[in-house]
Amino acid sequence: MRRFPEYFTIWHIAGHYGLRLVAWLVLAFLILPILVIVPLSFNAEPFFTFTPGMLALEPEAYSLRWYQEVATDQRWTLAIRNSFLIGIAAALLATLLGTVAAVGLASPWMPFKRLITALLLSPMIVPLIIIAAGMFFFYTSFGLVGTYLGLIIAHAALGVPFVIITVTATLAGFDRSLFNAGLSLGASPVKVFWDVVIPLIRPGVISGGLFAFVTSFDEVVLVLFLAGPEQRTIPRQMFSGLREQINPTILAVATLLVVLSIALLLTLEVLRRRSERLRGTGA
């Protein structure tokens, strides 16, 4: 039995357990809807619901057919390839530009810092539908609509704020005298950047890159407006599937994506711990 301070009355204790109950209920609300799709994705029937057979745990009510369909349907395999291709390219672009810029923004001499920071972070705040409409109008005149390049640029712009935020946070613990020491020893700023700064802020850069990747990987509004059929991504394919024909293939893909996000979550946790160790701040 847990020990409570002596001034606690029975109501305090009830409140304590009540709060705990509420907290767990909210957690259940957060997590259960995501988990419910996992068993549904093994449905042997082409429906989105638990069949009586599934509830009775009959083995023949379950099957891998929807996973097979994902693996063999040309549209899904293309979408998977596109998602990784666009996500990786957009993340690299955003990380490269964002990291370099974050170094400048972290400098105490940066002019117009507030304004420029706000500008660089704004893709995160402007509703996607507005960005999508604007890009559709503007990219059309450069022939970028319906191309991989257009999508990569668009997604990189969305990923930039995350890179800025994470890298700036790592740079906050970065001792600038190291940079200046490198310069005073005669190295060029570029060399100092690659050899001194990057290794130190690497955890921040990597997690920023991961954020940028996930942003692109999960993004569907810009894809709806800017992509042609050849650039279909996983979320785009899911979106049209949910609109046009609901079948458990989507659930199979969704389950795979849940597994992927668990992997990402673990990676980020490892990175966070390493970053804290490097900066000597965390436990």
Binding site: L27, L30, I31, P33, I34, V36, I37, L40, F48, T49, V214, F217, D218, V220, I234, P235, M238, F239, L242, I246, I250, L251, A254, L257, V258, S261, I262, L264, L265
Partner: peptide, 22 residues
């Protein structure tokens, strides 16, 4: 438990709600 939904694709979460609410 908070971060897993946060990191899970928006489409996945929307799909879940369709499965739940239909």
């Amino acid at each position: 438990f908070v971060l897993l939904p946060f990191w899970t694709s928006l489409l996945v979460r929307t799909t879940s709600w369709i499965a739940l609410l239909q």
